[in-house]
Write a protein that binds this DNA or RNA. Structure first.
Lengths: 228, 228
DNA sequence: TCCAAATTCAATTGATCACTTGAATGAAAG
DNA sequence: CTTTCATTCAAGTGATCAATTGAATTTGGA
């Protein structure tokens, strides 16, 4: 009788635990975690989120409603559309905490990281602090490899946008001298891993940023909105 | 087909999300969160954990196995018994992140906090930093109101142990001059709330510590093991 | 007012989870 | 070596969740 006690139980400790469990339950599905990562990039409609997460429309709507009931996202109506956004930046801390536990303790996660991600980038990623410092000194080319619409929703101040799909034919847009730091949606967003692997094959010095645009923004570091 | 894609899907992003979701799934039950809080006090047997969490034996064992598979706890055999402990202190960060999201975004959690916990202690709790500082200056009486066996498993250095059940008849053990800071298992452990309410009724100046023994220990602050 | 688009709701089916019971391990003690 | 005790495993039932489908709702425009 899962959770059925919670509504009738007057034990405050148990009631509180059940409400914490409801938050965890909302995170307990891969599709919702993927939707959350996309919601974290900026406010977008159900239709847009369904498309980027590879879900059908009604299914995405259901998942988003669950996330909203758990307090992880909020929505507002804008004309015909309903736009979803993160309820607060602390949601990124929660996602990061889940990620760190899985990285160090879940065999499946370690296998995927070793088998896919480390194969593309075995170097230490660039930390928030180091990136901010090198950006100030203009000692790095910062490359945002997300699609242009996501870049326009918000990006790290000083970044140039070359979506991964265009990277191979736009290599001339990158200065050859400086090291390139690539970032995208988060710590394990595949775009930046693929970008770094491609750039290295083409003779660039390239590394990844340890996190993504949402974490940068949540740290209070400078961002820009709009196309370049 | 919940999660069934994960095993056959070669998409690394989805596989990673599914493994993160498995961690969240392990947190998605009030009983497991309660077990985790008790495991965080120190290493204990399945039987002992079942008793303190108010679960029957087999049920507690099942929940603990789930927590272990998700990498949140580890177990070791000690003679006839199997002892469970947290896999790493970062699990406390994860629990804290869940708690903070629920506190600020889940209506049910806010209701319980306002209706039960704030009724017993409307004052700001004492922060880690402030408590460490005042302990060094001996400017506070630190009171551990957990049962004696938990105190013996580990406690904040300098604390005296009066279990909540004995507090009313052992008030004379507390010096009258200094402010009393009470703590127990964590941020919303009912013991310290009840203790503070009782002490105030009896004329003491009393506040709660913002967290509990596990968080204090995880912060690297001084602890002691054994009975006083 | 009526229609079209975006989203949510309602209902269905199959899968997974929670709790219980009884049997099966695995280590320790006689 | 058998017994005992702590724990885990296996299986069954009822509840909850995931994905899909079609209907209902809300808003903006014709």
């Amino acid at each position: 009788m899962r959770g059925s006690e919670s509504t009738t139980n007057t034990n405050p400790k148990r009631a509180l635990y059940d409400s914490f469990a409801a938050v965890a339950q909302a995170l307990a599905h891969g599709s919702r975690l993927e939707l959350l990562e996309h919601v974290a990039q900026g406010e977008r409609s159900v239709e847009a989120l369904a498309a980027v997460a590879g879900l059908n429309f009604a299914n995405a709507s259901q998942h988003l409603l669950l996330l909203r009931r758990a307090g992880l996202v909020r929505s507002r109506r804008d004309g015909k559309r309903v736009l979803y956004r993160l309820s607060e930046p602390a949601v990124l801390d929660l996602l990061g905490a889940v990620r760190r536990i899985a990285e160090s303790n879940v065999a499946e996660a370690r296998d995927v990281i070793a088998g896919y991600f480390q194969a593309r980038d075995s170097l230490e990623p660039v930390s928030r602090h180091e990136l901010a410092d090198r950006l100030r000194r203009k000692a790095v080319t910062l490359l945002d490899v997300r699609p242009s619409d996501e870049f326009a929703l918000g990006h790290v101040a000083g970044a140039i946008n070359i979506p991964l799909k265009e990277l191979l034919r736009r290599l001339d847009d990158l200065p050859r001298g400086k090291e390139v730091v690539a970032y995208c949606r988060g710590a394990y967003c595949v775009l930046s891993f693929e970008a770094v692997a491609l750039l290295r094959r083409k003779g660039f010095r390239a590394r990844r940023f340890e996190a993504g645009y949402p974490e940068w923004r949540a740290s209070g570091l400078p961002v820009r909105v709009g196309s370049p």
